[in-house]
Design a protein around this nucleic acid. Sequence first.
DNA 1: TCCTTGTCTTGATGAATGTCGAAACAACAG
DNA 2: CTGTTGTTTCGACATTCATCAAGACAAGGA
Lengths: 120, 120
Amino acid sequence: MTRLDTLAPAGREPATAAACCALAKTPVSVAESERLAPIFKALGDPVRLRLASLIAAAPEVCVCEISPLFELSSGTISHHLKTLREAGLVGSERRGTYVFYWIEPEVLGSLSALLAVDCC
Amino acid sequence: MTRLDTLAPAGREPATAAACCALAKTPVSVAESERLAPIFKALGDPVRLRLASLIAAAPEVCVCEISPLFELSSGTISHHLKTLREAGLVGSERRGTYVFYWIEPEVLGSLSALLAVDCC
DNA sequence: TCCTTGTCTTGATGAATGTCGAAACAACAG
DNA sequence: CTGTTGTTTCGACATTCATCAAGACAAGGA
């Protein structure tokens, strides 16, 4: 876990819009519920919620910085990161030896908008 | 499912505050992650997400209005509603024959604030 | 009182999930 | 090329979960 700062982060591109207060305004359709539920489910585990939070708190984070914060095997951490990735909540990229993760703010934001109350 | 409108809804009381952008600002603690994850998990099932949405779309809803919208046994619906109740996302009350559910906007709002990006 | 209707609880069961250890893969340094 | 370190994948296992059918409970009407 050394010399991480010598690896320059790549540029990320902006966002997509999201309906505001959608949960309360109009009942979500069956299709929407099946699309959104896995994203909430990905956040529905304490380990993954902390992982997402740690990743969101910095522009990007190396797995090697995250792992020591959990008393879990590297396989388990990798499995949880994969779940977050498949939910679209985070992106990842290998740069040399290390793998870096970043949050996808649009997805987070769309969930936030969905759950917002009295915003419009 | 008749004459539901003759049953007057009870009054609900206001909210509690929630930290904004907490997910990104400071990593959530282990304790917080264990408190919050079950709430996300409750929303992490398509049936429960639709249930929450249907309940949120009206001041309150009778179970008898919800059930026919799902092709599931009443036991299963009741089980999912219990999960939402235990997560604190909804409240319920029996009035005579029927049981009514309403959303708890504070909980929804605190999740929304937690996930919000660039709000402050 | 008994019956009907609405809701919840209780097993039971197959599927999904979280975890580990071990093996595999990737990148780099000698 | 060989060894080392970081990360992911694989196989196995115990636990949790979504669902149903059936029974229990609650409230009101005949």
